[in-house]
């Protein structure tokens, strides 16, 4: 394997990982854009959808239908979370929203342990999803899951971009993100917009969870937490509240991680998470609006 092949292989790895981060980060950013809310429970939407898919396919439901149903379950969990937990505290200081979502994570993860036990379960992917493509005598390899996650990430993100810039609902969401009071004043149904935002964000999380599970082969109650933390970094680095920023941040983060592990000295790779979060702090300090300069925060 020469260095060009090595680099190409690592680029493929980075795109595949970045796609997953991007899809989780987009939902975080959407919700943040409208509600100015740091949503810790976002990762759990990955979990609920994946469990639904596994249960349905165990019951004999064809895999593609189970996937769609799983995404619907994720979206539904998001809507319920908004209706039951977040709406009553809307308008409170942002820390209250953050803490409520933290408590909700705690509830959802322990409920999942209570119902499904803490043991991981295998995620039954059909064989065509695990097919391996090899080039240059096997020096460069990728799987159909890699392709599916990258393409579905790019397609769905493009779709989302079109939705927020070309539909009335999407434009309304952007208006609400800009100034909720003014949006309400001109007659936009804020509650409806927020519910739609949560449904879309959670649906994306569900899809990401599915791809995550297909790639890792297992699901477990706390499967959403670690990607959620990474998605925070991606969303903030890209510009919290900006959809394009979240996508950009996701891919940058994927690249950074692969760069550290693949190209850095071996001693550096266990410090990967520390480097990622140090980057987050640097961004918060020197470019709090992220790369896209969204939502400028007042700083001392």
């Amino acid at each position: 394997m020469n260095s060009l092949e090595f680099t190409i292989q690592q680029i493929i790895n980075a795109v595949s990982l970045g796609s997953l981060y991007a899809m989780v980060a987009v939902g975080l950013s959407m919700v943040f854009g409208i509600l100015k809310m740091t949503n810790f429970a976002h990762g759990d939407m990955m979990m609920t959808g994946s469990y639904a898919t596994v249960l349905l396919s165990a019951l004999g439901v064809p895999f593609p239908i189970a996937i769609v149903a799983g995404i619907a379950v994720s979206a539904l969990t998001g809507i319920l979370a908004e209706r039951i937990a977040y709406r009553p505290v809307r308008g409170a200081p942002d820390v209250t929203l953050l803490l409520t979502s933290l408590a909700l994570t705690y509830v959802l993860e322990n409920l999942a342990i209570l119902i499904f036990s803490g043991s991981p379960r295998s995620f039954p992917t059909p064989d065509w999803m695990n097919e391996v493509f090899a080039f240059s005598d096997g020096a460069i390899t990728f799987t159909s899951v890699d392709i599916i996650s990258s393409t579905s990430a790019i397609l769905s993100l493009l779709g989302l971009g079109w939705f927020v810039s070309h539909t009335t609902t999407g434009l309304g969401m952007r208006a609400a993100a800009e100034d909720m009071a003014a949006a309400a004043l001109v007659g936009l149904d804020i509650n409806r917009l927020i519910v739609i935002a949560f449904a879309i964000a959670s649906g994306f999380a569900g899809l990401a969870g599915m791809l995550w599970a297909a790639q890792s082969g297992i699901i477990e109650p706390d499967m959403g937490f670690s990607p959620l933390l990474k998605a925070f970094v991606a969303a903030i680095v890209g510009g919290f509240g900006s959809i394009a920023g979240a996508v950009l941040g996701g891919y940058l983060l994927g690249a950074l991680e692969i760069l550290i592990v693949g190209f850095g000295p071996t001693e550096l790779s266990p410090y990967r998470d520390a480097i990622v979060f140090a980057l987050l702090i640097v961004f918060l300090l020197f470019r709090p609006g992220g790369i896209m300069q969204a939502n400028r925060e007042v700083k001392l």
Partner: peptide, 13 residues
Amino acid sequence: PLMRLSGHHVSVA
């Protein structure tokens, strides 16, 4: 550096 931030930014940082 961190105490210059406010709101959720300081929480996340």
